[in-house]
Computed example of a mutant assay.
Amino acid sequence: MGTHLFLFGSSPPFNEQLSDTFYRHLSTSKVAVLYIEREGSDAYIPKYLETFPEEVSLFPLALKQHYTNEEIKELHQCGGIIIGGGDTLAYRRFIVETELNQVIRSLFERGVPVAGFSAGALISPDTSVVSPKDNVTEEQLFEKGLGLLPDAVLSAHYLEWEEQSCLKQAVEKTEVSVGYGIADRSGAYFFNSRLTSIEGYVHIEYI
């Protein structure tokens, strides 16, 4: 069975080949999109499923501090999970620090594919590295992540935000084996935590 993790450097939609791979591993046709509600969300959410066949249905779940039993039950019935982009620290607070953490990890370990876009990608490793350009302190932050990708750190908008030195610093500070710098409109697929395919531009930083 194995685990399936898809990480993207910016906004949706999926890259074409990675979309096909994600779709192939869906356990049901319902896909959850976890997002932070803001103006225009209703029109934006369908972009995450733009590349999928019409049979794939959407379960949009607006992130918050607590979730109802019905929301958790419906999430358990989803065949794939997509974590959206935006404020990385807010995504971390509403996912890593809530009951969604264990739900996502449990589904992921059962083979349900998980995809993260920008902020959603950044919270996926053991350590979530937040760029100085992505928080009000304007300093690089190191926070607890979801733990879906061990022994690695990640940088989103790698080329656009000129994250080269930040990624190198993150690898050195966390003492992980590798760092992945994912540019906009680019993505990577990890099968059983191993980088399996890339679409677009992904820089790999070793110690």
Rank of each mutant, 00 (worst) to 15 (best):
L63Q: 11
L63N: 09
K64Y: 00
K64G: 11
Q65L: 10
Q65K: 14
H66Y: 12
H66R: 12
Y67P: 06
Y67W: 05
T68E: 00
N69D: 13
N69F: 11
E70Q: 13
E70Y: 04
I72Y: 02
K73P: 00
E74V: 02
H76K: 15
Q77C: 10
Q77R: 12
G79Q: 04
G79C: 01
I81K: 04
I82D: 00
I82A: 06
I82H: 01
G84H: 04
G84Q: 04
G85S: 11
G85E: 02
G85D: 05
D87F: 05
T88D: 00
T88I: 13
T88N: 06
L89Y: 07
L89Q: 12
L89A: 08
L89R: 12
L89M: 13
L89G: 05
A90D: 09
Y91V: 12
Y91R: 02
Y91I: 12
Y91S: 00
R92L: 10
R92V: 05
F94S: 01
F94E: 00
I95C: 06
I95Y: 08
E97Y: 14
T98S: 10
T98P: 11
L100D: 00
Q102S: 14
I104N: 01
R105P: 07
S106T: 15
S106D: 13
S106E: 15
S106G: 08
L107Y: 06
E109Y: 14
E109F: 13
R110C: 13
V112N: 02
P113Y: 06
P113H: 09
P113S: 05
V114H: 04
V114L: 06
V114K: 00
A115M: 10
G116F: 10
L122G: 08
L122C: 08
L122E: 02
L122R: 03
I123M: 12
I123D: 09
